[in-house]
């Protein structure tokens, strides 16, 4: 079982709720993914349209746990206020903390991230920081009170997979007991399987499912990939080597030359 703070989860696939072609497709995709946690956000509500009320009804009907984010926040102050508002609206202390430092790559501002994580942890939030694979930043986030880390695979929505394999493997090896969730950049199920094979605890997918031609089918494919990758990790993958090693024993081979 995956344990995030004090919550135990069967599914190791977390799903974003953004950029689906329709609410009905979103619902189908969440069900097909078998995700128990979906990410959500806060945006301005019009008193006339009340779009947010309808969306919230759909999520509640799905019966999944929500992980609110602070997406789009560029300062510590913005992130803190958004987190406080999210805690009230969604009724959870979980917060996926994003403090964006650069608009082209949506790279986290890790300095602001650590500062915000410290303040929010002290205020009783259970912080899921969206971070890079940087070991020192990870260490500072843990010291600030985080008990889960969400390193990026690649820039959000880029579908590039695990960009810095060495860095991510080092992070995994360095913090063997900390739940690590690959967040962002995963494009296809093989990326997710790779993350799980390397021993990451879970993956968070959004665009790769939402923007697929058939989102629910893709959600199911990701669910299978995550399960396969996890099973492979537990089974203990063999070490790669540079030269061939015959799989058929040479001993007893007939002399026919």
């Amino acid at each position: 079982m995956l344990k995030l703070y004090e919550t135990e989860l069967r599914s190791r696939l977390l799903l974003g709720t953004s950029r689906y072609p329709s609410p009905a497709v979103l619902t189908e995709a969440v069900k097909a993914s078998r995700a128990e946690v979906v990410t959500v956000s806060l945006r301005r509500e019009s008193s006339g349209e009340r779009a947010g009320q309808g969306f919230w009804g759909i999520i509640r009907e799905l019966g999944v746990r929500v992980l609110p984010n602070t997406a789009g926040c560029h300062s510590v102050k913005e992130a803190l206020t958004t987190a406080q508002m999210a805690r009230e609206v969604f009724g959870t202390s979980w917060i996926k903390l994003e403090v964006i430092g650069e608009d082209d790559t949506l790279q986290p501002d890790v300095f602001g991230l650590v500062e915000a994580a410290r303040i929010l942890s002290a205020e009783g939030f259970e912080v899921f920081p969206y971070t890079t694979e940087d070991l020192v930043v990870a260490d500072k986030l843990l010291e600030a009170g985080c008990r889960v880390l969400m390193p990026w695979g690649a820039p959000i929505g880029s579908a590039r997979g695990l960009n810095n394999l060495f860095g991510l493997q080092a992070l995994r090896a360095h913090f063997p007991q900390v739940p690590l969730i690959i967040d962002a950049g995963i494009g296809v199920p093989s990326h997710a399987a790779q993350a799980m094979e390397l021993g990451f605890d879970a993956v968070l997918i959004n665009t790769a499912v939402a923007q697929a031609t058939h989102p629910a089918q893709m959600a199911a494919a990701f669910a299978q990939a995550v399960e396969a990758g996890r099973a492979a990790h537990l089974a203990g993958p063999m070490e790669p080597r540079d030269m061939a090693a015959p799989s058929t024993p040479p001993i007893g081979k007939a002399f026919l030359g």
């Binding site: 974003g16 709720t17 979103l26 959500v40 956000s41 301005r44 509500e45 779009a51 997406a71 609206v89």
Partner: peptide, 10 residues
Amino acid sequence: LEVLAPMQGG
């Protein structure tokens, strides 16, 4: 005044 509500998020 900012009035915010649940919305899709990644």
